[in-house]
């Protein structure tokens, strides 16, 4: 399964724009939403290959979104979820998120290039960049 579509749920405008810009350059089709409610709705309405999920979001926290998407039943079986946060979570919440996520990364340590390489690792193949 090649990864093409990415949903970025990120409220920080600079960070969001940075990811979107780099991912688009790398050939991915990216949608970007800034609040938690929109994030949950968008993730349920369309099958994304990858969902980039921030934790500290307005309206609805990333933890709640993940719980809603993958808590009781997996509503997004075809998606990979990468949790991206700068927030220091307590152990229980972090472990709970890790159980439902495919990756859990600290944003400050991840540059767009590294993020793309993580997505490629999840994919196992490199998508063709757009010309």
């Amino acid at each position: 399964m090649a990864i093409h579509t990415v949903l970025c749920i990120e409220d920080d405008r600079f960070i969001g724009e940075m990811y979107v810009r780099s991912l688009k350059k790398a050939g991915y089709d990216v949608d970007w939403v800034v609040d938690g409610n929109d994030g949950l709705i968008t993730a349920r309405n369309k099958d994304y290959d990858v969902i980039l999920l921030d934790v500290m979001l307005p309206e609805r926290r990333g933890t709640d979104i993940l719980e809603a998407l993958r808590g009781k039943e997996d509503l997004i079986p075809h998606s990979r979820v990468i949790v991206l946060t700068n927030f220091e979570q307590d152990d229980e919440s972090r472990i709970a998120m890790q159980q439902h996520a495919d990756a859990y990364l600290i944003k400050a340590e991840i540059t767009p290039k590294k993020l793309i390489s993580v997505i490629q690792q999840l994919d196992g193949m490199t998508p063709e960049p757009q010309v």
């Binding site: 220091e88 979570q89 307590d90 152990d91 919440s93 972090r94 890790q98 495919d102 990756a103 859990y104 990364l105 600290i106 340590e109 991840i110 590294k114 993580v118 690792q121 999840l122």
Partner: peptide, 9 residues
Amino acid sequence: IKNHSMYRG
């Protein structure tokens, strides 16, 4: 995948 181990609260 994770890129951290210690900043966990």
